[in-house]
Design a protein around this nucleic acid. Structure first.
Lengths: 204, 204, 204, 204
DNA sequence: TATGAATGAGCATTCATTCAT
DNA sequence: AATGAATGAATGCTCATTCAT
């Protein structure tokens, strides 16, 4: 009988051990060799779990996205207002206590960087789905707020898209202005708050 | 004296001939060799005019930024409202008739990509100055609008920063959603319009 | 006893399933992994039946050689002339109706290719035996023809060797000239015919 | 001004220094790294003179073919018979006194080996031209012999092709039978002699 | 018997930069 | 000023074979 191995777990182990490297050196600049060493396996083993380097990047993002979803699901309460829910959704501080948040921010920036020059469409496709998720969440949250009479929104589509793009723009600004995670996070919250305030009207 | 003019001119020539290559293949993927060939000089000559590859990129941006400034200066009129001025500032369609706009968009995306993973601080510093220029322009335009009684703004700093970050966010979105220049430009105008509308109040 | 028969059968199964792969992609370019998958066994299992990749190649040739021998034995008739027998011996068209002949030609070329750069002597030894078989067959056929008074041969050894080497030369030519099986086969027959004609004399 | 270099000479130097390696280890098994080291240049330098590994192989053959042509041109005399000319043409012993003949034989075998499994068509095309050269030479030599009344040939095309294919077949046989250059050369001469004898008729 | 996870050596090619001329 | 020859580090991926189970 063959060795018994939880493939999914090992896949995850390798992906996680690549995070630090990607953050420190960048995705492009991290070699498979280094990932293998850091994961404590041979180079060839990497390819038993990932078809190529990109898959490792995506695996990391799947892990992070999963954690974010789970953490949000835990924190969200039915009695929260729509605005509270949205602010909670974009509060990454509580996401994963063990995870170095500066790394997450950097990794996100590296990821966007790769996407921006992606020729293959792999990154682009993957990224597009993030936009969609954001859209769906914001749309349902805002509509719920409207239904509950919390506020009125004149142009819901424009508001949603502005928030989504703001989110991406903050990543760029954070890098250019040398912001760390804490500052970036508070900037994000401040601006979402602002957008929700100016984009909605309270019932008279 | 003549030498200095010549030198500046040749620098510009080389930078301009690199634009097409950078747009077609990406900054990363364009070799100095190719730039030299396309500029009609020897590889070593490049290094007489630029310290390294990055400097060429920055030189291109200086050119583009200059064109943008000039074109805006020509189009702006004193009798324009603040809103009109801002919308005109972010209208890149009229910037340079000979320049392929799709290329500019792509190059911008490549530029942001490089900045996001920049370790040296070269890109970051350069990029930060763009933010500052945007801030200064928006600040003066909005304050002028307020002075003229066109509108009132409750939180001018937040509004400016939101617009600036939106601008960067649209670049990311444009790539992820496979937008061309025209669509990206109209999305930008639409959202700036929206932000100016919801972020300002008309006098009663 | 049953075990041994099973073992031989499985060995054969694996070898046969490797044929298509070798033909399609070349011996060098076919991985053990692919052979295993195509044979429906695990990679390690291959090594229970073959010491290494070469052995699979030889096993295939043993199969092909056997088929050739059997098919010839079936087709040859005692009342055939020596020339007819020789031409029939080198008629591979009738060998194995189910086997793709283009594949056999290609595989033969791959086999010769491996032999030509063989350092281990494995291929060389194996190949030498083919020469010997050819020699023995041609020798006995020609001597029988002489005994029967069909023709006289002045230098039987040179004639035999010329035919044998021609056979190998045609494989090389077929590749260089992009011949398929049908053309290669007819070229072979034409030349053997020619050599037998000019290398023998009819009794006055 | 740039360093002055005889590019053609350096190209030749690199190619020649690769011969020993190709012979010792095979074309496939020789790495660019080794060729560079043996030529005393850096790896990248190789690519200033050759587009890829294949080009080195072809350069070597161009050199060998040139030497063969030159040496033959020197040795051939107008008063030689057609048969003498042909035998001289295929006498590689006198070709290049400084060149290790065993290496040439081995290299030829490696070359044919590469050609036999060539997917790109590079080798195949190159090799086909050798066939053509051989054909043209044999054709003109035989026709001259006929014109001069040295002999008559019934089927000149078949004779030429048989000789050409024999030439390739001997390479295969030489490897399989572990022949060195001397034995292979004498086998070649013996068989060409034989073929010319049985393929031609003296005038009555 | 059979499995399949793990290994790790091996390799062609690109390219920014230097520097002798 | 200009050239362009030379450098050599850097890297993703394949695959025959082994061996613990």
């Amino acid at each position: 009988m063959a060795r018994i191995i939880d493939k999914e777990e090992k896949r995850c182990d390798i992906a996680l051990s690549a995070i630090e490297l990607f953050c420190d050196k960048g995705i492009q600049q991290t070699s498979i060799d280094e990932i293998a060493k850091s994961a404590g396996v041979a180079k060839g083993t990497i390819y038993l779990y990932f078809k190529n380097k990109e898959e490792i990047v995506f695996a990391i993002w799947d892990i992070f996205a999963g954690r974010h979803r789970d953490a949000f699901a835990k924190r969200v309460r039915d009695d929260m207002s729509a605005k509270e829910k949205i602010l909670e959704f974009y509060n990454f501080s509580e996401c994963d206590e063990d995870q170095n948040k500066e790394q997450v921010l950097m990794l996100y920036q590296h990821f966007v960087s790769s996407m921006l020059i992606d020729k293959t469409g792999l990154y682009t496709t993957y990224f597009e789905s993030f936009f969609q998720e954001d859209y769906d969440f914001l749309s349902s949250a805002l509509n719920e707020g409207i239904k509950r009479g919390e506020f009125q929104v004149d142009n819901i589509d424009l508001l949603i898209n502005t928030i989504i793009m703001l989110l991406k723009g903050i990543l760029v600004r954070a890098k250019a202005s040398n912001m760390g995670f804490v500052e970036a996070q508070s900037t994000l919250i401040k601006h979402i708050n602002y957008l929700l305030d100016i984009g909605t009207r309270k019932e008279p």
